[in-house]
Computed example of a mutant assay.
Amino acid sequence: MSLATLDERTGVLGRRNALAKLVAATVVGVPLLLSIDPVSAAVALAAVLVLLPFARLSARGLWLRLWPIVVSALIAAAATVLYGRAGGETYLQWGLVHVSDGSLLLAAAIALRVLAIAVPSVVLFATTDPTDLADALAKLANLPARFVIGALAGMRLVGLLIDDWNELARARRARGIADNGRVRRFLGQAFAVFVLAIRRGSDLATAMEARGFDAPVTRTWARTSRLTAGDAVLVLLGLAVAAVSVGIALATGSWRFVLTL
Rank of each mutant, 00 (worst) to 15 (best):
L3F: 02
T5H: 07
L6I: 01
E8I: 07
G14M: 09
G14F: 03
R15T: 10
R15D: 02
R15C: 09
R16H: 06
L22G: 12
L22H: 06
L22T: 03
V23N: 10
A24H: 08
A25R: 00
V27N: 05
V28F: 00
L32A: 04
S35V: 02
D37Y: 00
P38F: 04
S40N: 06
S40M: 01
V43Q: 00
A44T: 07
L45V: 03
L45N: 06
L49S: 05
V50S: 01
L51W: 04
L52W: 02
A55N: 02
L57M: 13
R60S: 12
L62T: 12
W67A: 02
P68E: 10
I69Y: 11
V70W: 11
A73W: 06
L74W: 00
I75D: 12
T80P: 06
Y83G: 11
Y83T: 12
G87F: 14
G88V: 05
T90G: 01
W94E: 10
L96I: 11
V99Y: 00
S100N: 05
D101I: 05
I110K: 02
L112C: 14
V114T: 12
A116E: 03
I117E: 01
A118C: 14
V123M: 05
V123C: 00
L124E: 08
T131N: 11
D132E: 09
D135L: 14
K139Y: 00
A141L: 00
A141K: 11
A145G: 10
F147P: 07
L152R: 12
V158P: 02
G159A: 15
L160E: 07
L160I: 08
D164H: 02
W165M: 09
W165K: 01
W165N: 04
E167M: 13
L168G: 10
A169C: 04
R172Y: 08
R173C: 07
R175F: 04
G176A: 09
G181D: 11
R182I: 13
R182K: 11
R182V: 13
V183S: 08
V183N: 06
R184A: 14
R184W: 05
R185T: 15
F186E: 05
L187N: 05
G188D: 11
Q189S: 15
F191C: 00
V193N: 06
V195N: 08
A207R: 01
A207I: 10
D214V: 02
A215T: 06
P216L: 03
V217G: 05
T218H: 13
T220M: 10
W221V: 05
R223Y: 12
L227G: 08
T228E: 14
A232G: 14
L239Y: 14
V241R: 11
V241Y: 03
S245Q: 03
S245W: 01
A249H: 11
A249M: 14
L250F: 11
T252C: 07
W255Y: 15
R256A: 13
R256S: 15
V258P: 04
V258W: 15
L259C: 06
T260W: 01
